[in-house]
């Protein structure tokens, strides 16, 4: 069952990409393309890229060298789209709040530089797991992309959580799916590229990564296609204020006093 070219293997490689294409179609039908253009592009190009790699893998006419070339191209396109998608998530999450956006941009640049350096060091110290440069390079490129992607996404989620900024439901779903996929793939590729595994263990890791990616595609479908439950808030009777504030409602005098005090402080 957990063998390359088993039914489960074919399913886990093909199904998430077909679902992703269906998701892109439904996004287009529902007019979500204008809201999330980069995610839409990612869904289409990433799915097509993965399906191309799948065809290159099973087609006997494609040589091993050409398979890895197709894999490289797919990875590069997907990598560029992922970073564009992270920029889209950042813009949606912090764009409306100028003060946080300014600090966030400053911090994410620093985090980005640190991650690029760390990824460079990790790639530099990684042992060669194959005698072929094309295969080694592909593994290291995957590891590099996932390391930077994981760090940036974890930073965005942590930063928005610290400021209690609520990401919209579809945006949160996109960020969640991408983050889980990045974390699991980073761990898997780090082991594949650096630990010198036996083929059987490696297949198990491949299956695990593929299953997690399938789950992430389902997370995207859920958050983008299923509307949020509408909460019905009970109305609070005016005579019973629901919190422990001073009993008297604020008056215009309060506001004037505060404004006067603020003016005094500002002009001190």
């Amino acid at each position: 069952m957990l063998q390359a070219h088993s039914i489960l293997w074919h399913y886990l490689w093909v199904a998430p990409n077909v679902i992703l294409l269906a998701l892109a179609f439904l996004m287009w039908k529902r007019g979500l393309v204008k809201t999330f253009p980069i995610f839409f592009s990612f869904a289409i190009l990433s799915a097509i890229g993965q399906l191309a790699v799948y065809v290159a893998d099973i087609a006997p006419s494609v040589s091993a060298e050409n398979f890895w070339r197709v894999d490289w191209i797919s990875m590069l396109v997907e990598g560029v789209l992922k970073f564009a998608l992270i920029a889209e998530i950042f813009a949606f999450a912090f764009g409306p709040y100028s003060s946080v956006a300014k600090l966030g941009k400053f911090l994410i640049r620093g985090v980005g530089i640190a991650l690029v350096l760390a990824a460079g060091v990790a790639a530099g110290y990684a042992p060669k797991d194959s005698p072929y440069g094309l295969i080694n390079g592909a593994h290291l490129l995957e590891q590099t992309i996932y390391l930077i992607e994981t760090g940036l996404l974890a930073f965005i989620l942590f930063f928005s959580s610290y400021f209690h900024l609520r990401l919209s439901r579809p945006l949160f779903g996109i960020a969640l799916g991408l983050s889980i996929s990045a974390c699991v793939h980073l761990a898997a590729w780090a082991v594949i590229a650096n630990a010198g595994l036996k083929n059987s263990t490696r297949y198990h890791l491949d299956f695990f990564s593929m299953a997690v990616y399938h789950l992430c595609v389902l997370i995207w479908c859920y958050y983008l296609l299923v509307p949020a439950k509408v909460r019905i808030e009970p109305t609070v009777p005016p005579s019973e204020p629901p919190f422990n504030s001073p009993s008297a409602p604020p008056t215009t005098k309060d506001l004037d006093e505060l404004n006067e005090e603020m003016e005094r402080l500002l002009h001190r």
């Binding site: 989620l157 699991v184 780090a190």
Partner: peptide
């Protein structure tokens, strides 16, 4: 190196899952 990267990935996953659960609690 693999161990360090796996630990980093697990820590990042913990951050992601924590944010997800705190979002649910917040609602």
């Amino acid at each position: 190196l693999a161990t360090i990267l796996v630990i980093a990935a697990v820590l990042a996953l913990v951050v992601v899952l924590r944010v997800t659960f705190s979002r649910g609690l917040q609602v």
